[in-house]
Amino acid sequence: MAEAPPRRLGLGPPPGDAPRAELVALTAVQSEQGEAGGGGSPRRLGLLGSPLPPGAPLPGPGSGSGSACGQRSSAAHKRYRRLQNWVYNVLERPRGWAFVYHVFIFLLVFSCLVLSVLSTIQEHQELANECLLILEFVMIVVFGLEYIVRVWSAGCCCRYRGWQGRFRFARKPFCVIDFIVFVASVAVIAAGTQGNIFATSALRSMRFLQILRMVRMDRRGGTWKLLGSVVYAHSKELITAWYIGFLVLIFASFLVYLAEKDANSDFSSYADSLWWGTITLTTIGYGDKTPHTWLGRVLAAGFALLGISFFALPAGILGSGFALKVQEQHRQKHFEKRRMPAANLIQAAWRLYSTDMSRAYLTATWYYYDSILPSFRELALLFEHVQRARNGGLRPLEVRRAPVPDGAPSRYPPVATCHRPGSTSFCPGESSRMGIKDRIRMGSSQRRTGPSKQHLAPPTMPTSPSSEQVGEATSPTKVQKSWSFNDRTRFRASLRLKPRTSAEDAPSEEVA
């Protein structure tokens, strides 16, 4: 009796068929016929556990003709996506030579605008209408194809895939403007070719909807975003200037109206006075309405000098805001240009540092100066060695804690006790272990408590650290204090090793 083939788990290929790579489910599931010992083939499952149809090819690079078809379809799909992405970037994010197409579109729109203006002049109306009709045909074809291509290429973005995504893309403001202008152009052409009475009025009214094509030149909205950011950044200043200017306008108009309503027919109503105030304070000055009385002229002159300053403030605020924003954008561009080279330089330096163990090129690091100058660790070890030599091999803490019996001779020589300023008595072995921070803190506390006492003391002649007598400086308080830590004499004296002298005989010792 033939044995059933062993159940295979995992992703390994079956024996005897090495080139074939078959994806098997996580659990080997066989058909009921196979479990019962029949000759049925096992049921194939996909990666998600769903059964595959009987005629479906197995996924994998070596699955025969199905694999070749899959490779061809995958390559075609990649080319399709690449083309779609390229078209989308050309239309929505132009760079380099892609601006040539947008310059061509701008020339078409500008020519249409010029011809629309010439069509309103009686001398050039006939020729402009003929040229404009031909140009409209060209623009309908160009913009119609462009609109379709834009909607198709938007599928390269995830949020615009599918018919719902394309509809979302078509609802964008600039796409809506394109659609309105396209419909208006078709209506103008249809009305112009019919030759009816309505054609002339339709051409004159709907052609100027094509002015909206100038708005579509900035599809990404960079200028509007820049203007919005400047207004938002200086909103408080703008609101303040406009508010005060509006108050000056209504008060000036009302007072001039009261002064001129009886003697001047131009100011017969408050609305006429508001019109005069707006034209005057905005420095336009049509001259259609002028005050005639001396009181009205004085009020107009005073409020004009006051109001023009507030009406001119928004222009200066926006101008300075634009300058600052442009400078910030230039700085951001320079930062973006330098970020990648800086990151590459840091990575290269780290690779060199991690692979080169000698690091002989590091001549400006802490390790280099640590090898030249005595390190703080060596100074600490030197302090501890000196203290243990004086205390008979014991550390200062051990000397303080060691009990001394009554009447027993002390094995240590008597030492002079010292007192730290602002604290109780402490171990004499710690007097010379006072660090730089303690010395600086002690000097600052003395300056806070009594700076007036220092200038009363007789001035001391500054001497070099080499000429100081070591026996005289029994305490860190003898170090000359200065008002600034930048004094080199104080810094050098604080680094010197001060020996400890006994109370009975204080021989001067120098520590090399």
Rank of each mutant, 00 (worst) to 15 (best):
G39R: 04
M340I: 13
N129I: 08
V248M: 02
Q122P: 11
K236R: 00
A241T: 00
F254S: 00
I211V: 00
V90G: 01
L127I: 03
V141G: 11
A191P: 01
R95C: 10
A184D: 00
V215G: 00
E136G: 00
G39S: 02
A4V: 03
C175Y: 00
H124R: 04
I180M: 00
V326L: 15
T27M: 04
R44S: 09
I121S: 05
A312G: 14
Y243F: 00
L11Q: 03
R43G: 06
A263V: 04
A75T: 10
G10D: 09
M139T: 07
Q33H: 12
Q33L: 07
V149G: 14
E32D: 07
W294S: 11
L115R: 01
G62A: 14
R7S: 01
H124P: 02
V109I: 00
R81G: 14
K333R: 07
P57R: 03
P61T: 12
S268P: 05
L108V: 03
Q347E: 02
F182C: 10
E136K: 00
H292N: 11
A68D: 08
D218V: 06
A21G: 07
L258M: 10
P341A: 15
L132H: 06
W163C: 06
W86C: 03
A233T: 14
E126K: 01
F198L: 05
I140F: 08
M217V: 10
L305F: 02
I308T: 03
F310L: 02
V298F: 02
L47F: 05
N89S: 10
V114A: 06
W97C: 02
A241D: 13
I346V: 04
P6T: 02
L52M: 10
D178E: 00
W86S: 07
G64D: 08
L107F: 00
M139I: 01
A4T: 14
D178H: 00
E328Q: 08
P59A: 10
I211T: 00
V117M: 15
T193S: 13
F174L: 07
H77R: 03
G10C: 07
V138L: 13
G12V: 14
S41C: 02
R79P: 11
F143V: 05
A2P: 05
S119Y: 04
I140T: 02
L107W: 01
V90L: 06
L212P: 00
A315G: 04
F182L: 10
L274I: 10
V141L: 08
I177S: 00
F110I: 06
E22G: 04
A263G: 05
G228A: 05
F310I: 04
C69G: 04
F310V: 00
R8C: 11
G62R: 09
A98D: 06
F106C: 01
R82C: 03
W97S: 01
L23R: 10
G222R: 14
Y147S: 07
Q194L: 14
G55D: 04
A199S: 15
D218N: 00
A233E: 05
L145S: 03
A187P: 04
R82L: 05
C112F: 03
A2T: 08
A28S: 09
L132I: 13
V87L: 14
M1T: 12
V231L: 04
V109L: 00
A184V: 00
I177F: 15
G228R: 00
Y257F: 00
F254L: 14
Y88N: 02
L324V: 15
K333E: 00
T290S: 00
P341T: 14
P6A: 10
Y243H: 00
Q122K: 13
P57H: 03
L255M: 09
V248A: 10
Q347L: 07
I148M: 14
P5S: 08
G38R: 09
Y232N: 00
Q329R: 13
Q327P: 02
V100A: 08
S111T: 07
P54A: 08
V100I: 06
Q71R: 05
A184P: 01
F137L: 14
S116F: 01
K236Q: 01
I211F: 00
A28G: 06
R219H: 00
R79S: 14
G39V: 01
S63Y: 15
S65W: 01
S73C: 08
F311L: 06
S67F: 12
I180F: 14
G55R: 06
L58F: 06
I189M: 12
L48V: 10
I346L: 14
N196S: 00
I197F: 00
Q122R: 01
L52Q: 07
P19A: 12
H330Y: 11
I189S: 02
S119T: 11
G221C: 00
L299M: 02
F167V: 05
S153A: 12
T200R: 15
S201A: 00
K78Q: 13
P14Q: 07
G96D: 02
T120P: 13
P54Q: 03
V141M: 00
I250L: 09
V151F: 10
R166G: 06
Y257H: 11
P42Q: 08
H124Q: 06
C112S: 11
D17V: 07
G302C: 04
C175R: 00
A75P: 09
G39C: 13
A25E: 04
G37A: 09
N196D: 09
A301G: 05
Q30P: 06
A76G: 05
F137Y: 02
Q194E: 03
L48R: 14
N196Y: 00
R297K: 05
F106Y: 00
P5A: 12
L295V: 13
P57T: 02
A4D: 04
R44L: 14
A56P: 09
Q125R: 01
G37V: 11
A300G: 10
V181A: 00
L135S: 14
F251Y: 00
V138M: 03
E35G: 13
G46D: 01
Q125K: 07
A300S: 12
S63C: 05
A343G: 08
L115P: 00
L324M: 15
W294C: 00
L11P: 09
Y232F: 01
M340R: 07
N264D: 05
G277A: 06
V24M: 04
A98T: 03
N129H: 04
A315P: 03
E130V: 09
F174C: 13
Q125H: 00
F167S: 01
Q164H: 10
C158F: 12
G66A: 03
D266G: 11
D178G: 00
E3A: 11
S119A: 11
R220H: 01
P54R: 05
S31C: 13
P61Q: 07
S50T: 03
R219S: 01
C175S: 07
G62S: 02
A202P: 15
S41A: 03
A18P: 03
I140S: 15
A170V: 01
